[in-house]
Design a protein around this nucleic acid. Structure first.
Length: 421
RNA sequence: GGAGAGAUGGCCGAGUGGUCGAAGGCGCUCCCCUGCUAAGGGAGUAUGGGGUUUGUAGCCUCAUCGAGGGUUCGAAUCCCUCUCUCUCCA
């Protein structure tokens, strides 16, 4: 959520900035709602004040044993007017709240202006894609030939966009999770966390999945939703909390499955493990001091990069342009790994600073040097998406015989195994 | 699944219809005294919103005692629903 006061002061200016990310702020209806809100709220509060004062008076008179019928008669008429007013006010307030909840974050000034993915800016490339002297196979062909990956079996169990891994590939997926968690907890200072995979609506509202992106979630009959990312569980740990300034920044990581309905992705990446309804991910979350958050974003990004470097996977870093930013993000770096079979770089991590956008929704704060609560900044990034890392390893480390060589750094996690065959 | 108890400010804990946003204690901050790894005295110490304002200052004001409804001139206190915690039974 944006700062409401800022919006009231300069709706036009904010609308202009939002336009760069393709969002049309309805300034006219906002101003209309806001004027109405102000009128009703002032009036309602005046009446409440009147009622409070008179009621207190009744208490005092009664204590003195005096007659109160005159005052009571006077106050009792207030009730109806007040009820009508507050009802109108509540209608306006919930309209306004919904309005606020649907406005995306403002892009940071360093974010390149652009309309779509096409205009994202490549920052750097790391590593050189290997040249193959044979025709490369994609991970589906490789995995099925090994008899360790089956989309057919998964379709039987559930449906499309699921996978079954068995044998060494299943182990590889598990190894990747351990490998990533070990690096982040031992070398990067993250606190390992185990969190619920089902969350309530308040949490989803906090991190911005609701109210706008309900259709991307899997809901349950219990009223909870499956997390689309551990960002939801981890970041909401801070909801309605106030921490000491000296405790910032907080760094949390968790390995969880993620569940996404991929509602808007019909026909996209239908083959293979790139876009699944269920996948594993190691998530990295920072709770930072507002003044530090952009420095933290650089660290967060470098932590995700470390994984790719240790696995010796070629990748590039992209700064998302305004038009491609996620709803909550003020700035986002995507890490894209090289996939030889697709002959392109594909997203494997997305690192974002949401500034105070989520914190404001969640009332996540720290006590500043003046002793006043102040909103923290929240950041999140994948470190990394495990399914896609598995794909990247399979495709980049394949040999002519269709075997998968295990990256050096990962071999200890595979019980010394060097090749999957 | 059944029966019961509970949810109050950073923490503990009073408060069962009226000047209660809430006693007291602990903790914390500041000041005084003391001059020494201690003690004593005093003051302060919730959060969110709105109005006013050049102002994140001040002033005025509304809301909040698990959440949401209700009764009442007036609710932490009474009623209903829900959530969570604990105890006992199965």
């Amino acid at each position: 959520m944006l700062d409401v006061k800022g919006l009231r002061e300069d709706a036009e200016g904010i609308a202009e900035k939002l336009k760069t990310r393709g969002f049309d702020l309805d300034v006219a209806s906002f101003k209309r709602l806001e004027a109405e809100r102000k009128r009703l709220q002032v009036e309602a509060e005046q009446l409440q004040n009147e009622r409070n004062v008179q009621s207190k008076q009744i208490g005092i008179l009664k204590a003195e044993g005096k007659d109160v019928s005159a005052v009571m008669a006077k106050v009792s008429t207030l009730g109806d007017t007040l009820a009508q007013l507050t009802q109108n006010l509540n209608t306006i307030l919930s309209e306004l709240n919904n309005f606020y909840a649907c406005i995306p974050n403002l892009p940071h000034e360093s974010v390149p202006i652009g309309q779509s993915e096409e205009e994202n800016v490549e920052i750097t490339r790391v590593g050189t894609p290997r040249t193959f002297h044979f025709e490369v196979k994609d991970h589906v062909a490789l995995g099925e030939a090994l008899g360790q990956m089956s989309f057919e079996k998964a379709a039987k169990l559930t449906g499309a966009r699921f996978v079954v891994l068995q044998g060494d590939l299943a182990r590889l997926q598990r190894a990747l999770g351990q490998f990533m968690l070990d690096i982040h907890t031992k070398e990067h200072g993250y606190r390992e966390s185990y969190v619920p995979y089902l969350v309530n609506d308040a949490s989803l509202l906090g991190t911005g999945q609701l109210p706008k992106f309900k259709e991307d979630l899997f809901n349950t009959t219990a009223g909870y939703s499956l997390i689309p990312t551990a960002e939801v569980s981890l970041t909401n740990l801070m909801r309605d909390d106030i921490v000491a300034e000296k405790d910032l920044p907080l760094q949390w990581t968790a390995l969880t499955p993620c569940f996404r309905s991929e509602a808007g992705a019909y026909g996209k990446d239908t083959r293979g493990m790139i876009r699944q309804h269920q996948f594993e991910k190691v998530e990295l979350v920072w709770i930072s001091h507002p003044e530090e958050s952009y420095a933290c974003l650089e660290k967060l990004r470098s932590h995700a990069e470390t994984i790719l470097q240790r696995l010796e996977l070629p990748y590039r870093i992209v700064s998302l342009c305004t038009g491609d930013l996620g709803f909550c993000a003020a700035k986002t770096y995507d890490l894209e790994v090289w996939l030889p079979a697709q002959n392109t770089y594909r997203e494997i991590s997305s690192c974002s600073n949401t500034e105070a956008f989520q914190a404001r929704r969640m009332q996540a704060r720290f006590r500043n040097s003046k002793g006043k609560p102040e909103l923290v900044h929240t950041l999140n990034g994948s470190g990394l998406a495990i399914g896609r890392t598995l794909v990247a390893i399979m495709e980049n480390y394949q040999d002519e015989a269709g075997r998968i060589h295990i990256p050096k750094a990962l071999q200890p996690y595979m019980n010394g195994l060097e090749v999957i065959a």
